[in-house]
Amino acid sequence: MATSPRRGRRHPLASIALLLVGLFASGGAYALFTGAATAADNVPSAAQVENGKALFAANCASCHGLNAEGTKAGPSLVGVGALAVEFQVGTGRMPMAGSGPQAEKKPVQFAQDEIDAMAAWVASLAPGPGMPDAEYLSGGDASNGAELFRINCAMCHNVAGAGGALTEGKFAPNLHNIDPVHIYAAMVTGPQNMPVFSDMNITPEEKRDIIAYLKFMDENGSVGGLDLGALGPVSEGLFVWIFALGGLVAITIWLTAKSN
């Protein structure tokens, strides 16, 4: 079943066709957006959706199926919404580098307009979480966010956002220097092993507060000096044995060395 699309994708003219589709789509989209830049975010054009479908067929369909219906290798994406695509593709997790305990971050493989196109197509399949309004991505109350973070996030991501281990080789990544939209998307869509924090659970305003707290930590750095990876007592203990005690032992050897 999966062989016919594969053969189609490997047809000698496929890349040329794709390139043409891409050029038409981006050119068309450019003309469209420069004309009416306002409501373009929420209402994708038909061309964008078509482009997204083509990109999806070329890059995602081998695991997720041509119609995003899912295969043995990957889940169905019907109803995951544009935001899930933005998170997975926008952080480089998808397309996945290889099968493993979980998809890991890597350099982003697509341009933003290509990601938007795929998101638009996936969103057109069934309703799902869409892009958040810009007002929920900045501003916010860091101290409320910090408290929410400790209660809802710290058990996996560590209280200082340094990340932590999960079962079977899976892990909660560290949360330093993450794009606000991806923090928001992770809470809404619950990627990989993360639970979904719906708007009933944590309201968009509270999500904004959490983003504000994480951004505060990114911007203000460590006030006490080198943070040793913000890993807490383990790295502190290693540091004291290796550098403090190691350095002092070197000094004792120096002090008791016989002069030549």
Binding site: R150, I151, M155, V159, A160, G164, G225, L228, E236, F239
Partner: peptide, 20 residues
């Protein structure tokens, strides 16, 4: 080198337990 940055950990509250 910083040690025990308690401000990053927040006040004690019996409900949250941090990873690591």
């Amino acid at each position: 080198v910083t040690i025990n940055p308690i401000w990053a950990y927040g006040p004690y509250d019996p409900s949250p337990v941090s990873a690591g």
